[in-house]
Computed example of a mutant assay.
Amino acid sequence: MAKNDIVGIKKISMYVPQGIHDSKYIAEKSGIPRDVIENKFGILKKHKAAPNEQVSDMAVKAALKAIEGIDPMDLDLVVYCGSEYKDYYLFNLAARVQDVIGAKNANAFEIHSLCSAGVLSLNVLKSMMLSNPDINRVLLVTSSKETDLINYENQRSRFMFNFGDGAAAALLVKGYECNKILSTHMITDGDFAYDVASYGIGSISYYKYSVLDYDLRNLDVRNPKSMKERLDPVTLDNFCDVIEKSVEKSGYRTEDIDFIAPIFMKRSILNHILDRFNLTEENSFVLENYGHCQSADAYISILEAQKLNRIKKGDLVVMLGAGTGYTWAATTVKWG
């Protein structure tokens, strides 16, 4: 692979707010026993942003960590791939980050694919960088404050009780020969497109309500039983399929996988995936102290795994994501 055909991840950073919703808090608010929250939902604690800490504030904090020691004027592009729940409705958060961090020479835009965007954006941006001689340094940022949208009393939305607040950023550099971004594979099943939404916001509801009450602003699930019946038979296979195909498209075999950086999932599902590839929890990271920080999950997994020496030079790392709608995605990275 020629140097000009390489895009590497020079640095990954993260930010999580100080507030905490632990399993005791969630149990009290939801009426679900604490041991169920911890063992079935897979949550020990997660972070909660303060009311005056906005989605862009967290994104900027992660971004500044990712570009420490680098002149922001050298960035060519700033891209946001996080939650669509942002400071304002119909608001360009990428442009806000570009301005606040001082990346005045950079263009900015957003990629939205819900919780799969952090993984698949790597391949989108790699392609852009390799086809554009004037794009050499890209800052990818994701942030989420979706705890605001969760009503613990709404049992229809209980599969989203794991949402936690936080942000991550990755600095991508053309010609950087470490942490090389390889290939991505995705599976989308649009049958799930209407299953999860904030149903009171958008063109369908715009003319229905003169005043939008709190519940209509929250995330909700239209028919949890139906969604579960359709999702359970396919989700494990789809996770494994995108992992396998991402690795194979990258020129490797599944036997070469050293680490899977997952989206938040309870330990039992993660272990099923790891078993499929003859891996153990030492080859991954359980996000039980973070919850589901939307598209930031795989990046947090990598950072925490590095602290535990679970990722080393030369490892084949697969970043795994999934977003309602429903899209499963995996991107393979050759580490070190």
Rank of each mutant, 00 (worst) to 15 (best):
V7G: 08
I9C: 03
K10L: 13
K10M: 15
I12L: 12
V16K: 12
G19F: 13
G19S: 09
R34W: 00
D35N: 15
I37L: 13
P51L: 10
E53T: 14
S56H: 07
V60L: 11
L64K: 14
A66K: 04
E68C: 05
P72A: 13
V78H: 11
S83W: 13
L90K: 15
L90R: 15
L93G: 12
A95G: 15
Q98P: 05
I111C: 05
L114C: 10
L120Q: 09
L122I: 00
K126T: 06
S131M: 09
N132A: 10
N132T: 13
V141I: 14
I150S: 02
Y152H: 14
Q155A: 08
R156K: 15
R158E: 09
M160W: 00
F163G: 02
A169R: 03
A170N: 10
L172F: 08
V173C: 11
G175T: 04
G175A: 03
N179W: 00
I181S: 02
T184V: 07
T188H: 09
V196D: 02
V196R: 03
S198K: 07
I201C: 04
G202C: 06
Y206L: 10
Y209W: 04
S210E: 12
D213V: 02
R217H: 07
D220E: 07
V221S: 02
N223T: 05
N223V: 06
R230E: 10
D232P: 00
V234S: 02
V234R: 10
K245E: 03
S250Y: 00
S250T: 03
D256E: 07
P262M: 11
L270R: 10
I273A: 12
F277N: 12
T280Q: 11
G291M: 09
H292T: 02
S295K: 03
N309I: 02
I311P: 01
L316K: 08
L316V: 13
G321W: 03
G325S: 04
W328G: 01
A330G: 08
V333F: 04
W335M: 14
